[in-house]
């Protein structure tokens, strides 16, 4: 069974990743033999599950840094500009027969938009609702305009980008997502110290010698990558939820940052797997179901957090004496 159904100029580059996809598929077939779960028998769902698992890691990973800087909405803005990128890709494919996945043009356009948002915020000295709303609507307007002037034929295909689709995750798009996944996880793993410091206390981070502006730029560009990657399954309209909802849930039940990162990834994976399962058996759109499951998990986390506080395992310790001088005490 050859997974490479369509040809793309990138196929030679992505060939090793196709091998990875085949390996994953073999593993899924094995799992099907063992469990008899019906959804494991289709190769396109194998890819969708793999993409979903990757989204479940990278979305909350980036989302944690965004949410705690009150930037929860930036994902939404970038998703809508990514839609413009998809439209550009479809347009170019139709006009000059470029033959690349619209997700690649979406990556490029979303990253440019991310940089634009960041530069605007640097010059105006604040992230504000207004500039975010302008970028969001500009992206969406550009997308719909490009698609509409490019003949009605294309309009049929855009539902998968708006709402996401499990069955249209092509090998090429899955391979692109694997590349995005590795780039995102590697960048965060390398710069986690700096990102944490900048997220928690921008001024102190600047004083401690971290080039804050650059890390902010890196952060929004990573966000653009996550958004485009997650769009395949989640769709433009719901993709931002994966950046925010699991993170918000994790913040309810954890007290450490490392803990909240881990918990948010666990919650997101739970939502993705349950969501894909339910969507398959109920015949519903995966993106919507995943978000509903994620929100349900969030509500449970809020309740768990309240219970945790009410039970009150925290007896207050006393502040110790200050121990800085030789014979000096605090009082």
């Amino acid at each position: 069974m050859n997974p490479v159904l369509q040809t793309s100029p990138l196929d030679p580059l992505l060939a090793p990743l196709y091998a990875v996809l085949d390996l994953w598929s073999a593993f899924m077939f094995l799992l099907w033999d063992l469990t008899g779960l019906g959804l494991l028998q289709y190769q396109f769902l194998h890819r969708a599950i793999l993409v979903g698992l990757c989204i479940g890691v990278m979305a909350p990973l980036i989302g944690t840094f965004l949410v705690h800087r009150q930037l929860a909405l930036i994902g939404d803005a970038l998703a809508h500009t990514a839609f413009a990128g998809v439209a550009v890709g479809l347009f170019l494919n139709a006009v000059i027969d470029l033959g690349v996945s619209p997700y690649l043009t979406a990556v490029v356009v979303a990253m440019l938009a991310a940089l634009l948002i960041e530069v605007i915020s640097e010059t105006t000295d604040a992230y504000n609702d207004v500039s975010m709303a302008i970028v969001l609507s500009t992206g969406f307007a550009l997308g719909t305009t490009l698609i509409s002037i490019n003949a009605g034929g294309l309009a049929v295909g855009i539902n998968q980008y708006l709402f996401g689709n499990l069955s249209t995750v092509s090998p090429e798009n899955a391979a692109i997502l694997l590349v995005l996944f590795v780039v995102i996880v590697a960048t965060v793993a390398l710069t986690r110290n700096q990102l944490l410091y900048v997220t928690f206390d921008e001024t102190a981070a600047e004083v401690s010698g971290i080039p804050v502006t650059w890390y902010n730029r890196v952060m929004v560009m990573l966000t653009a990558l996550v958004v485009v990657g997650a769009m395949q399954i989640m769709g433009v309209i719901l993709v931002a939820a994966m950046l925010v909802v699991p993170v918000a849930g994790a913040a309810q039940v954890t007290r450490s940052f490392d803990g909240s990162l881990l918990v948010s990834i666990v919650l997101a994976e739970l939502a993705v797997l349950l969501g894909i399962g339910v969507a398959y058996y109920a015949g519903a759109t995966a993106g919507g179901v995943i978000v509903l499951v994620a929100v349900a998990i969030y509500v449970l986390a809020v309740v768990a957090g309240k219970v945790q506080t009410a039970v009150g395992d925290e007896e207050t310790p006393t502040v110790g004496a200050i121990d800085a001088g030789e014979e000096r005490t605090a009082d």
Binding site: F200, A204, R255, S256
Partner: peptide, 14 residues
């Protein structure tokens, strides 16, 4: 933000 005192102090070592 969920972050412990120790994690905040840790930033001093960054």
């Amino acid at each position: 933000m969920p972050i412990t005192v120790r994690e905040v102090v840790k930033m001093g070592r960054f």
